[in-house]
Write a protein that binds this DNA or RNA. Structure first.
Lengths: 118, 118
DNA sequence: GAGCTATTTCCATATTTCCGGAAATGTCGT
DNA sequence: ACGACATTTCCGGAAATATGGAAATAGCTC
């Protein structure tokens, strides 16, 4: 219905719909609430600083990541609330109850909860 | 986690990360398993046939929709399994257990924030 | 086969996104 | 204020994506 909501969903989706950005997002998810320095992300993913910055800006515009300053570093972390909202939107609008089964079916594997150093 | 899987996720996400395609997808979700004729979709969304075809091809390449012929019409329907797989992927890789609560049943009060960057 | 309908492909064009080096900005310690 | 460091912005070009009209393809009926 609301075009605004759909616009938001599109921006959230396109914040993830790129290989580099999805990698960044995953890394930040692993890092958890503490987040990661921009430089650390760049190092982890072997990505030029300017490219990384471009993608982070994209993700931030969609509100999928948060930025905070700590000394001379900028720390990025995922905005889990926004991610939840996206999941909710997809559940609402892309599964429509009827056919969408509980997730556990499609995700049988145990997940390794590893931590990434900053 | 395999790059292949991530590549697939990117293609699935980008199949949804466009206003027209998200509209198409939603319409098809509503239509359910029966699907909808291409012409009907175009009519519903007031979209030129060639543009629609372009987007459907995109979605089909990502395996997010199915196509079947019925007489001279081509009927499209969402591939719910693929959608489930995408949800599973996001749950696995973008929530990582810790912060992602079970999908709240509350309506998505997702606050649309600011625009996509200029 | 002719005529009709539904849809896709083709094509040229417009727009957006992506990339990465260089320069600018901001922050800290001294 | 100065220098080292962290990150972003600027900029140009390359690549991908979007658009929609016109022509082509595929199926149906007579």
């Amino acid at each position: 219905m609301s075009d605004e909501l759909r616009d938001w969903a599109v921006s959230a989706l396109s914040a993830l719909a790129h290989d580099s950005r999805l990698q960044v997002h995953r890394l930040l998810v692993q890092a958890g609430e503490d987040g990661l320095r921009a430089g650390a992300i760049a190092e982890h993913l072997s990505m030029p600083a300017s490219s990384l910055s471009f993608h982070l800006a994209h993700m931030q515009a969609a509100d999928m990541v948060r930025q905070r300053r700590e000394g001379r570093s900028l720390i990025y972390s995922v905005n889990f609330e926004c991610m939840d909202a996206l999941m909710a939107y997809l559940h609402e609008n892309c599964c429509q109850g009827v056919t969408c089964r509980p997730v556990s079916q499609a995700a049988p594997k145990a997940r390794p909860r590893q931590k990434v150093m900053a």
